[in-house]
Simulated scan of single mutants.
Amino acid sequence: MTDSTAVPEPGGHAARTTHAAAGADTDVVAIAPDPAVAQGILEDAPAAEIFDADTEAKARNLIGRYPQSRSALLPMLHLVQSVQGYVSQEGIAFCARQLELSEAEVSAVATFYTMYKRRPCGEHLVSVCTNTLCAALGGDAIYKKLSEHLGAGHEETSGEPGTPGSITLEHAECLAACDLAPVLQVNYEYYDKQSEQSAVELVEALRRGEKPAPTRGAPLTDFKGAELQLAGFFPEDEETYRSHVDGPSQAVETLRGARIAADRGWTAPVMEDVPLPEVEKK
């Protein structure tokens, strides 16, 4: 046998060990792209200081809406974001504990969907569509302009996360509004037919504490407020509820095809009902 090597080498080099020699612990904070985030992961805060009794009551409410408790994971992750503005390691542990899942199971879901953020978000999340049609009509230019204006790249925040006027920027895949391209969203509400100038004016209004009305959809709230709605919680008072969710949802461009068909008497062929095949019971 030859002497062991510090690091295993390929080829015919027999060695006493097949592992690298142990070294000093890696300083994960020093090598992290964002040391502040790495430090936050290492320093777990007591969950009780973050998720209060009201949040736990909402979590139990969510669980009660489903026949299997694990089905409440997606809205519960939104609930966590409504408290912290992102899904922290404490948030992962909170969901796992409430749903009797492992933290690995919760992490697998939280890291799969782009709507769950792993770093603290600003007061507002600005999503610029850079998919094919929006990009061709100016979406790429809008994203570049906002990135330069805010001094922030993808999933980066201008300002202190969570503070008034702070903005997290991201480029998004198709926002399903090709007929109104280029579009962007603020906290998932639509702002259609944007330009570089209008997009800059929009983020400057957000920085000033204003909430410009979306082109379509509900009145604008902040990111945490939108997350609470996505978790499924709304005001109980009907009038207040309506003021939070009601808004225009139609656009002339979206309905143009249907109106042309109606004007010309075009109708779709009638489809006969066909019974579904029998499915073996499990």
Rank of each mutant, 00 (worst) to 15 (best):
M1G: 14
T2V: 15
T2D: 12
A6D: 14
V7G: 00
V7A: 09
P8Q: 11
P8Y: 08
T18V: 13
T18Y: 07
H19N: 09
H19K: 13
V28A: 15
A30K: 08
A30D: 14
P33Y: 11
P35W: 07
V37S: 13
G40H: 14
I41A: 15
E43L: 14
D44H: 08
A48R: 15
A48C: 12
F51T: 09
D52I: 04
A53P: 13
D54E: 15
A57M: 03
K58E: 01
K58I: 00
Y66L: 11
P67G: 06
P67L: 06
R70F: 05
R70K: 14
H78F: 03
L79H: 02
V80T: 07
S82T: 05
Q84S: 12
Q84T: 12
G85L: 04
V87S: 05
V87K: 02
V87H: 02
Q89C: 03
I92V: 15
E100K: 07
A104I: 10
A108D: 14
V109W: 00
A110N: 01
F112E: 13
Y113M: 06
T114Y: 01
R118T: 02
P120N: 10
E123N: 05
H124R: 09
L125Q: 09
C129R: 02
T130M: 03
N131K: 10
A135C: 06
G138W: 00
D140A: 08
A141I: 07
A141K: 07
I142A: 06
Y143A: 07
K144F: 04
L146C: 06
S147K: 01
G153F: 00
G153A: 03
E156A: 03
E156R: 05
T157R: 00
S158R: 03
S158K: 02
E160A: 08
E160M: 03
E160I: 14
P161A: 05
G162R: 00
I167V: 06
I167E: 02
L169F: 03
L169S: 00
E170W: 05
E170Y: 00
C174V: 05
L175Y: 03
A177L: 09
L180M: 15
A181C: 08
P182E: 05
L184I: 10
L184R: 01
L184N: 02
V186P: 04
N187C: 11
N187W: 00
N187H: 06
Q194K: 00
S195T: 15
S198M: 11
A199C: 11
L202T: 09
V203N: 02
V203P: 11
L206F: 10
R208E: 15
E210W: 04
D222G: 08
F223K: 10
Q229A: 07
Q229V: 11
G232V: 00
F233N: 07
F234V: 13
P235S: 01
E238M: 06
E238G: 05
E239G: 15
S243K: 14
S243D: 13
H244D: 13
D246H: 06
G247Q: 07
G247N: 09
P248K: 12
P248Q: 06
V252F: 14
T254G: 04
R256T: 12
R256P: 13
A258Q: 15
I260H: 14
D263V: 13
R264T: 13
G265L: 08
G265Y: 01
G265R: 01
E272Q: 15
V274Q: 15
P275L: 03
P275Y: 10
K282W: 13
